[in-house]
């Protein structure tokens, strides 16, 4: 099970990296915001899996903080970028 979970976590990490390609190719700020959102969601998923692999519930607390921060980050990102437009 542990090796299996490691494989899944690696897969998720690779999907974040592939998302980075979108950031590099998509020149608009909206694509960068999407990458931030992808990072947030995937990072939380990876933390959930790591908490099971390492059997450490403390990582769940890290995931809670991540989930909250990802939301705030995204809102700040959009608000700041919108100021430049209008």
């Amino acid at each position: 099970m542990t090796i299996y979970l490691y494989a899944i976590a690696t897969l998720l990490l690779l999907s974040i990296l592939a998302g980075l390609i979108r950031v590099l190719r998509g020149p608009r700020p909206a694509e960068r915001m999407m990458a931030a959102q992808l990072f947030g969601t995937a990072a939380v998923a990876i933390l959930l899996i790591l908490s099971r692999i390492m059997d450490s519930p403390a990582l769940l607390d890290v995931a809670v903080v991540f989930a909250l921060l990802a939301a705030v980050t995204l809102v700040a990102f959009v608000v700041l970028a919108s100021r430049k437009v209008s």
């Binding site: 608009r28 947030g40 969601t41 769940l60 809670v64 939301a71 995204l74 809102v75 959009v78 919108s82």
Partner: peptide, 24 residues
């Protein structure tokens, strides 16, 4: 805690999607 995490991310991702689309 896991349910709370899911809830935060679900709300944040729906709201975030709306904000990004409005910005675009």
């Amino acid at each position: 805690r896991i349910a709370l995490i899911w809830f935060f991310v679900a709300v944040a991702s729906a709201t975030g999607g709306h904000l990004i689309a409005t910005h675009a």
